[in-house]
Simulated assay, not measured.
Amino acid sequence: MTAFSGVSIGYLADRTGLAVSAIRYYEAQGLITPWRNSGGQRRFHRADIRRLSFIMIAQQIGFSLPEIRGFLKDLPGGRTPTPEDWTQISQDFRSHLDQRIETLQKLRDNLDGCIGCGCLSLPKCALYNPKDRAAQKGQGPRYLMGDRAETENDP
């Protein structure tokens, strides 16, 4: 197969191990962009093998499809990405991974204490989060997100 004629969805499925339905779903999500040949068949760039592999890896790490779409938006369409293209995307990916690692470390280190979720379901939440003070800082697990717990003596 030449690059001009593209590759079939079956070929992509064989090369990536993905189901054809998954490839169609990623297409519908705007993660890959095929075209139609003169016979109306869907054709893909060979570079989509790398894109799909990247998608699978990013999903295994826990990235959402909108996040993955954001990473892929800077890759060129219609040609195989160069090492420089992948270096650019990896810098953004690394930054997101570093943030996730930091969050996971905070979670690990505070599993036995309050994370400031405002649930008030644990008996000691009254000690860590009296009168749901964390809720004043916003929604979500405030202490896990970097807010500090206040003590009774804090202003």
Score class of each variant (00 low, 15 high):
137 K>F: 11
108 R>V: 13
89 I>Q: 09
127 L>P: 09
60 Q>I: 07
115 I>R: 14
89 I>L: 09
74 D>L: 07
24 R>G: 02
43 R>Y: 01
44 F>N: 06
48 D>C: 00
30 G>L: 01
134 A>D: 10
17 G>N: 01
68 I>W: 00
100 R>L: 04
36 R>L: 08
1 M>L: 12
136 Q>N: 10
41 Q>Y: 12
43 R>K: 08
107 L>E: 12
53 S>R: 09
56 M>V: 09
22 A>N: 04
110 N>K: 13
93 F>P: 04
22 A>G: 02
28 A>D: 04
98 D>I: 05
125 C>S: 15
46 R>V: 14
46 R>G: 13
34 P>R: 02
5 S>R: 13
75 L>V: 07
120 L>A: 14
65 L>C: 02
20 V>K: 01
52 L>K: 00
89 I>S: 10
17 G>P: 01
95 S>K: 03
33 T>E: 05
75 L>S: 04
47 A>H: 05
39 G>T: 13
59 Q>G: 03
111 L>E: 14
143 Y>A: 10
121 S>N: 10
59 Q>W: 00
24 R>W: 00
150 E>G: 14
45 H>F: 06
9 I>R: 01
76 P>A: 06
83 P>K: 14
138 G>A: 08
70 G>T: 07
137 K>D: 14
36 R>T: 07
24 R>E: 01
61 I>H: 01
87 T>R: 11
102 E>H: 10
8 S>D: 06
41 Q>P: 05
77 G>N: 14
43 R>H: 04
96 H>C: 06
15 R>K: 09
44 F>G: 04
102 E>F: 07
119 C>N: 12
131 K>Y: 08
4 F>R: 13
13 A>H: 02
8 S>K: 07
69 R>N: 03
103 T>S: 13
125 C>E: 13
62 G>D: 08
60 Q>V: 09
126 A>P: 06
133 R>T: 15
10 G>P: 09
89 I>H: 07
95 S>T: 06
71 F>W: 04
109 D>V: 08
107 L>G: 12
2 T>Q: 12
83 P>F: 14
7 V>A: 06
116 G>S: 13
121 S>M: 08
20 V>T: 06
11 Y>W: 11
135 A>K: 12
150 E>D: 14
111 L>V: 15
149 A>E: 15
37 N>F: 11
146 G>Q: 09
147 D>Y: 14
9 I>T: 03
74 D>E: 11
92 D>R: 05
59 Q>H: 04
27 E>L: 01
78 G>I: 06
89 I>M: 10
23 I>G: 03
153 N>R: 15
119 C>Q: 13
54 F>R: 10
103 T>Y: 10
86 W>L: 00
74 D>M: 11
61 I>S: 06
56 M>F: 03
57 I>R: 12
33 T>M: 05
16 T>N: 04
79 R>Y: 07
110 N>D: 15
93 F>D: 05
116 G>V: 11
119 C>F: 05
